[in-house]
Design a protein around this nucleic acid. Structure first.
Lengths: 103, 103
DNA sequence: ATCACCGGTAAGGAATTTCTTACCTATTAT
DNA sequence: ATAATAGGTAAGAAATTCCTTACCGGTGAT
């Protein structure tokens, strides 16, 4: 049982691309799979990972299943990277100061 | 050659913990490995992943190697999650409005 | 009723990850 | 010079990932 971890879920470029598509609105699995050079079951399996991480929710509509984005778990990622913001800001500041000294 | 991907590098809880430690300042491998119930080579291998992702830099000092954080690649992660901020904010707003209607 | 479509699950294989122990070099200490 | 310390790399095992094909149950169309 490899826990539904959001960091793990977004580690895959395919899954990030799926989320990016879903940011444009809910989609059927068929539509989601279309742009990928991958079998449809493979996409289904990626969707399962996203579902278990809480990043997507499915809604049955007729014989289709519409997946919609649930971005809330991404807050954990944003919060974590946020702790590092000061480091790259400091880096940028030092670089700017260095250039000013020279120029 | 499994490209040095930052999303992949931070997918591991161990590697995130290593970065968290390094946020407190540069450390030798010995010190970095101490808190983990893992062999030292295992930590070395995690450090390699972080190094290839550009998240840490090593500096030789005597017979030690000091690793220091380089947070810059994390900007890519922060930027990516940033695109989703409006979604979880919208979610929070809708929830708030719902509660106000009821209360 | 039958057929087509949507999409999930199962089984299996190749590749990757993540650990271990063993070993090696470089540097410092005695 | 010899011994101890720091830490990278190699080889191999176990677990996991990520794809494939085959198959299945629902739902809608004819």
């Amino acid at each position: 049982m490899p826990g539904p971890d959001v960091f793990d879920a977004i580690a895959s470029p395919v899954r990030r691309a799926l989320l990016d598509v879903l940011a444009g609105g809910a989609r059927s699995v068929h539509d989601l799979a279309a742009p990928f050079e991958m079998s449809r079951p493979a996409v289904s399996q990626h969707l399962r990972v996203l579902r278990e991480a809480g990043l997507v929710a499915e809604e049955r509509v007729g014989r289709e299943r519409h997946y919609r984005l649930d971005a809330r778990p991404l807050r954990a990622v944003a919060d974590w990277t946020g702790h590092y913001e000061r480091f790259w800001l400091r880096h940028a500041r030092l670089l700017r100061e260095l250039l000013e000294e020279e120029g």
